[in-house]
Amino acid sequence: MDKTALLIIDVQYDFLPPSGSLAVPNGQDILPVINDLLDENKYDWPVIVASQDYHPRGHISFASTHPPHKPFEPLLVRDARGTTYQQTLWPDHCIQGTRGTEIEENIKRKLGQWGRKVRLARKGTHMKLEAYSAFDGDAYPGEQKLPSEGPLSTYLRKRGIEKVVIVGLATDFCVLQTALSAISASFDTLILGPAVRGISPEDTDKALVKIRNLGGKVIDQDEIDWETGLNRWFDL
């Protein structure tokens, strides 16, 4: 596993039922699996990346930024790069300084036990830029930004990483885009099915098909022997 990194995508309170402002249906079901993956007695990840939506108020993706439009409506917007695209508008979520932006407490506690092996990637920090992929985030070890180390893909390469295991929320948005970024950067990419959940069942199925078609691997629930564990799926 010395060449395999675990990427934990957006396991934050605003994406978790029952009270998250943009709760992913059944999102809480992935927590036991991710907790198991963070058990130091079972696994020895050389690198763990936890991504975090970290929006300023008035973010370009918020419906409240574009009155009178409502959450989940599509809207053509122009971002800070001058790109015009169709944005799905969201309820306000993961606003800096709110509980909703925090990583779920048990996951956060377990991450703390891994020390300097953990890297935090905050994304969506620019008011006028959308960012779904963890590879689009600013990378922090803990809370200290290291701009000299470059993007997440560069950091992973420096650490000798060749394969990424992706878990988290939501399959049809941030998990999908993180997987596409990883595949584009030539990392072997594995999605652990029991540890991801999506917003729309139809779009989740499409996302997993797309990942498979582009060369990623998706491990389904029925492919796992929970008695023998998950390690065999992570070996290069």
Rank of each mutant, 00 (worst) to 15 (best):
S64Y: 03
T65R: 03
T65C: 02
H66Y: 08
H66G: 07
P68K: 12
H69F: 08
H69K: 11
K70W: 09
P71K: 13
P71V: 07
F72H: 09
F72R: 09
E73C: 07
P74R: 08
P74C: 05
L75S: 05
L76I: 11
V77C: 13
V77W: 11
V77E: 12
R78C: 15
R78H: 10
R78E: 14
R78K: 15
D79V: 15
A80T: 06
G82D: 11
Y85K: 06
Y85E: 06
Y85D: 10
Y85F: 13
Q86T: 15
Q87S: 09
T88M: 15
T88D: 12
L89T: 12
L89Y: 08
W90P: 06
W90Y: 13
P91N: 12
D92W: 06
D92M: 06
H93W: 15
H93P: 13
C94S: 12
I95C: 04
Q96H: 12
G97C: 08
G97W: 07
G100C: 04
G100I: 03
G100Y: 04
T101G: 03
I103P: 03
E104G: 13
E105S: 07
E105K: 07
N106Y: 04
N106E: 15
N106H: 12
K108I: 01
K108V: 01
K110S: 05
L111W: 06
G112T: 13
Q113D: 14
Q113R: 15
Q113C: 11
Q113P: 05
G115P: 05
G115C: 10
G115F: 06
R116I: 04
R116E: 12
K117L: 05
K117V: 03
R119I: 05
K123H: 00
G124E: 10
G124Q: 06
H126E: 02
H126N: 04
M127T: 14
K128L: 11
E130A: 01
A131W: 02
Y132I: 00
Y132R: 04
S133D: 01
S133V: 01
S133W: 00
S133N: 02
A134T: 00
F135L: 02
D136L: 05
D136Q: 09
G137H: 00
D138N: 01
A139W: 02
Y140T: 02
Y140P: 04
E143K: 06
P147G: 04
P147E: 05
P147S: 07
S148E: 14
S148Y: 10
P151M: 01
S153H: 14
Y155A: 09
Y155H: 12
L156K: 14
K158I: 07
K158P: 05
K158G: 14
G160P: 11
G160F: 11
I161S: 03
E162A: 10
E162D: 06
E162P: 02
E162H: 10
V164Q: 01
V165Y: 05
V165G: 14
I166W: 04
I166T: 10
I166C: 04
V167F: 06
V167M: 05
V167H: 08
V167W: 02
G168N: 12
G168T: 08
A170T: 10
A170M: 08
A170V: 12
A170I: 02
A170R: 04
T171H: 07
T171I: 08
T171W: 05
D172Q: 07
T178Y: 00
T178F: 00
L180F: 12
S181H: 06
S181E: 02
A182F: 06
I183C: 09
I183T: 09
S184K: 15
F187Y: 14
D188C: 11
T189V: 07
